[in-house]
Design a protein around this nucleic acid. Sequence first.
DNA 1: CGGCGGGCAATG
DNA 2: CATTGCCCGCCG
Length: 246
Amino acid sequence: MGAAGIASARTPNPVFEKDYFRVPQPTSFAQCPQFFVGGKPPAIPPRPMQRELCYEAFAVLHSGETRTPVYVAQRLNRRVLEQADKKRADKFFADARLPTAERAELEDYKRSGYSRGHMAPAGDMSTPTAMAQSFSLANMVPQNIQHNGGAWSKIEQDTRRYVLRAKGDVYVITGPVYTRTSPSIGGNEVRVPAYLYKLVYDSTTQRAWAHWQANREGEQVGAPITYQELQKRTGIDFSIRPAPQH
DNA sequence: CGGCGGGCAATG
DNA sequence: CATTGCCCGCCG
C-alpha cells in the first residue's frame, strides 16, 4: 500500500501532480514495510516531531527539529533499476503532508550556498511518479555543492552498479548526521548535516557495508565502514543482522 | 574531450 | 511556473 497511501485519493495522471501532497495524509511505516529488511524499520531514539512518510519508491522518517529526513529507506533490485526513468524532473517541492512548522521550504535552500541533496537519489527512480516524489524536500538535506556532484554522486552510481549485478533485493538506508555545532540555513533553520551515510545490505549474500562522508568540499570516496561501526557512529540500531564480515 | 548526472539561476 | 542555458566533477 505504499503508493496507495499517497496517491489513492487521486491517481489518474501518471505524471507528477503537486497536489498529490496538497491534502496532508498521515502515513506510517506500517503502510510501506516493503522498504525495510524483514519489514522492520530502524530503531530510533524517540524525538519530538518525528513523522513516518511513505512514498511510492522509498520511505522517510522525517524530523521537524532539523526539517530534514532522519533516514530514508529503499529496496532496490536489478529489475527496478533497469526500468529507471532516464528523464530527470527537477521539480523540488515542500511536502504538504508535513505541518509548516516542521518542514523545509524552497526558500530555505535558495541562495543558501548549499544544494538540495537527495537521500533517495533521483537516478534510482523507475517511474515518473516515483521520480517526482523524490524531489520532496522531505527527502533532502542541505549538502555541500561540490560534494553532492562529486564523491556523493559517485557513491550513488557505484551503489546502482552493485544493485544491477546483485541477484536479489538490496536494501539501502541513507541519512544525515549532525553535531552540536552543525549550522542551519534559511528562515526555518534547516539543519546542515556534518556527515552523510549510506548503508547497503544485500539480502542475498546478507552482507552489509556503509559509506561515510563528511558533508564538505574536497571529501573523497573512501573505504566503506562496517555495519557495526555505522551503528556506533550514528547511535541507530538499523535492525539488520548481516552475516559476519571477513 | 564529450557525455552524463549532480545541481543552479535567469528569463519570459 | 515552465523553459532554457549554464556550472561542476567524473568517467569512458
